[in-house]
Every structure is written in C-alpha cells, then in structure tokens.
Simulated scan of single mutants.
Amino acid sequence: MKIVTHDGGYRLTMRLGVLDIGSTTAHLRIADLTAGHPPRPVATLKRRLRLAEAIGGDGVIGRAAIDRLTEAVSEAADVAARHRVHELVPYVTAAIRDAANRDAILTEIQAASGVRVGYMDAEQEARLTFLAVRHWFGWSAGPILLADIGGGSMELAYGDGETPDLALCLPLGAGRLTRHRLPDPERVKKRHRRSLREHVESVLAKRVGEIAARHRAGQATAVATSRTFAQLARLCGAPKAKAGPHVVRELRRADLREAIELLGERTPAERAQLPGVSAARARQILAGAIVADATMAALELEAMRICPWALREGILLDRLHHPAGHARHLYAIRDASA
C-alpha cells in the first residue's frame, strides 16, 4: 500500500491484523503501519470465548469452547480479508498454550478456518509487551518494571532499554487461580481468599527477588498492562475509557486493598455492576486483584501506571521496526486478501 504525502512523495504502509486469543476473548486488531508513525487503528473485533471456565481438571478444553473458538477465528479471518490485510498474526496465550489438547485444538482451527494459529513462549510475550510499553512511555521513563496479569499466567519484566533485561512468567493468571484455588467462585469464603493469597505470596517469594532488587536500585517506573489491571484501576477511581488513552491512570495499592474486600463480598453478577468490571471478567477479577496486590507488596510498589498498549501493540511495533518480525512464525497461512 502506498499513501501520497503532502509534498507529492510516497510512504510505504502495510496493513497488519493481530488476533489475540486469550482465556476470555478473541480480539482482532487491524492497523496500518508506516515508518515514523504509531500504528493507525483500522478496525477491531472482539468475541467472548470463556475458555477459562471450560478447562476440565485434566487440562482439556471442552467441546463447546472449541466450537466458540473456531467460529471466532473464522469470523476474524473474514474481517481481516474484507479489510485487505497484508498479513495476519494469530496467536493463543497461556490458556490454550498450556491446555492438554492444545495441538488438537490448533489443528481443528486450521481445518475449520484455513488459519494456522501459533503461540509464543511466555518470555517472548513479555518481551513484546515490554516493547509496547517502552514506546508508549518513551525513554524519559527510565528503567521500567512491567506487570501483566492474563488469564493463564502473569508476566513480569524489567529493563532500561527497548527490550527487558529480565522477563518472568509465573503461573498466576486470574482464570487459572479462580479455577484451581477458589472452590466456589460464586461465593468466595474468606478462608479461600487467605489461602489464595498465601499461595500467590509463596510463588512470588521464590521468583521475583532479582527484579525487586533491580527496581530498588534503579527506581524504575512501575507499569501495569492487561484488562485485569485496567479494570481494577477503573474500579479504584481511574478515569473512564471514554476519557481517552492519553489520560494518566494509576492503580494505587491502598485503593486496591479496599477493592478486594468489595469484590470478595459480591457474586460475579454483582461485581459486573461495579465501575469498570466487565461481565466477561467478573468471575476472575477477585483472583486478579489478589495477585495484583500481592505483586505490588512483593515489589514494594505503592502505585502502578496503567499502559493502554500491550502485547498486540508490541507485535505491531515489532513488525514495523523489524521486517522479519520476532513473531513472524505466527503469521497465518490463509491468504487474507482472497
């Protein structure tokens, strides 16, 4: 694609589609990429998947959820084709990546939709998310400490460059913990909340020592991404989404502790009526809040800034600045222009 500039010249623009298949939703974002400019949004599509609640004790994702998944990928591929994307990058995150029937699911998706869906290892996800955060905040942010709570895992990263010096993936996803650590998510007992907290603190104590030490020594800018952090920040008083992405949003630990009590007293249906909490994440938002609070305590953080860019934007930026793209092996087989 070529776009005529004001001086009569041309600049090259490519249209990329990124399809993020998580535990809660399948989210397609289509953007135009032009050197020297941020990604320009073209279209988005979201479809609810509810994969986290469809994973059995044996780690197998059930039939109904697989059907929802194949339908969502097929629809996303059709939308990408209508918008004439040059490349489509479809990938699954931890919920499917770690599923016992992962390979069968990916094979079925390709047979039904014509799209070969890939997956990244957790470290690669953390590095691409860090790239997006660095571009959003710029070099003036200095060292960055990043936290990203997903459905299946939590990623932590630290560094003073464009990519992190350290990147960790911890089994502390909000969906995973809800499934395994909260026996009755409809009415969570205080003892189960305490038990979950103790488990999270135990995992953090074993893994985050080096990142915590780097943060204390370098006074990093603490940043959080993901819908879980964004919804918790809104619940705790951050501006609404309609205020725009450039409004400063923070999640303060003092407010978060109060939010945990509020969430713990309500059913998922009641939580969905609270500011910022979506119905899709209401079931797992309590576990996410406990992880966020325990993580901030372990890293000695009183507040974290919320970044609107995350993994999808990291892939777009990676493709824009590196023609080969670190996620190139994820590109779809399907000819999206057909």
Rank of each mutant, 00 (worst) to 15 (best):
G114H: 06
G118W: 10
Y91P: 00
D98G: 02
A72R: 10
C169A: 15
G151R: 11
L156K: 10
A76V: 03
A111Q: 14
S153D: 06
L131T: 09
E155A: 03
I105T: 11
A65M: 08
R116F: 02
L156Y: 10
R179C: 11
I144M: 09
L51S: 13
P143Q: 03
L166P: 00
G173P: 11
I66A: 07
S113R: 00
H37C: 07
G151Q: 08
R116Q: 14
R40D: 12
I144R: 09
P90K: 03
R82Y: 09
D160E: 14
Q110L: 03
A100I: 01
A174S: 15
S74T: 14
G59K: 02
E125I: 07
M120N: 05
R179M: 11
V133T: 13
G56A: 13
I109L: 08
T178A: 01
E71H: 09
V92S: 08
L106H: 03
E162H: 12
W136R: 09
R47K: 09
A126N: 10
H37R: 14
L172A: 05
V85Q: 07
V92Q: 06
Q110W: 04
W136S: 00
A167V: 05
Y158M: 10
L45T: 03
E75V: 04
G152V: 05
E108P: 00
R48Y: 09
G175N: 03
R116Y: 00
T70M: 03
G138M: 11
A141E: 11
W139L: 13
G114T: 03
L168I: 03
H86Q: 13
E108I: 00
D58V: 03
R40V: 14
C169P: 01
